[in-house]
């Protein structure tokens, strides 16, 4: 591992254009936050369409929401919250220099992320069976405005799932780096900013769950 007495300037992970590890970490964290702002705006366009069409077609929204499986949506919410916990613990393990803690928690995060995607796959498959995918094969007996609901359902959850796939890829890279013992109390920026990304994807789902699955359950 690193020599704890070595000055920061000589840390092997310090890039040439930064003065110190602290500056490098601050730049990475700020960079990830700025990137997450762009992600907020990216999903924001979808939420804008959601707000408009839900206000224009409330009945289509209620009817569409009835077709979603509340149990699977809730299960996935719990799974993602678990993954956020293990992610936070993985970052903490890196900060305190526990290699085992990093590896265990990163693997758990990857497992939870994969469970989420598998559940999502079964949900999608059901939508295909029930002719709920917008387009030529959409159930003609339904109010056409429900196509707007299901288009947004697939775009929102699809873009979210794509972010999950990217996140799992990032976690695999982090696991590789943790395995090699790259992270320490001086250098944990990669796992920290990957964690920020992972939590952000969780937050998107925290909003998607009530807005897509839970409307009209009181009927």
């Amino acid at each position: 591992m690193e020599n704890p007495n070595a000055p920061h300037e000589h840390h092997p992970a310090l890039q040439h254009h930064f003065h110190s590890m602290a500056q490098q970490l601050e730049a990475s964290v700020l960079g990830m936050w700025v990137f997450l702002v762009t992600e907020v705006m990216f999903f924001g366009g979808l939420f804008m369409a959601y707000i408009l069409y839900r206000s224009l077609y409330p009945d289509a929204w209620l009817a569409g929401s009835q077709e979603l499986d509340e149990f699977l949506g809730g299960l996935n919410t719990v799974v993602l919250i678990c993954s956020s916990l293990t992610m936070a613990l993985a970052v903490r393990a890196a900060q305190v220099g526990s290699r085992k803690g990093q590896i265990v928690n990163l693997i758990l995060t990857i497992v939870f992320g994969t469970v989420f995607l598998v559940v999502k796959y079964f949900e999608y498959a059901k939508k295909f069976e029930h002719h709920l995918v917008p387009g030529a094969h959409f159930d003609p007996a339904r109010d056409p405005a429900q196509q707007l609901y299901f288009s947004l359902y697939f775009m929102m959850t699809g873009v979210h799932a794509l972010h999950m796939v990217v996140g799992i890829g990032l976690m695999l890279v982090m696991l590789h780096m943790a395995w090699k013992g790259r992270f320490s109390a001086e250098y944990f920026a990669p796992v920290e900013i990957s964690g920020l990304y992972w939590h952000f994807v969780d937050i998107v789902w925290i909003f998607l769950f009530p807005l897509l699955y839970l409307i009209g359950k009181h009927h």
Binding site: G45, A136, Q147, L148
Partner: peptide, 28 residues
């Protein structure tokens, strides 16, 4: 990012047959 997602939505309409801006089903 907002124009990016908007372009993606137009792409989904053209490529996948989704309906976001399609007036035939009430889109605006």
């Amino acid at each position: 990012p907002v124009v990016a997602i908007t372009i993606l939505l137009v792409g989904a309409e053209r490529a996948l047959g989704f309906a976001i801006f399609d007036p035939r089903v009430g889109g605006d």
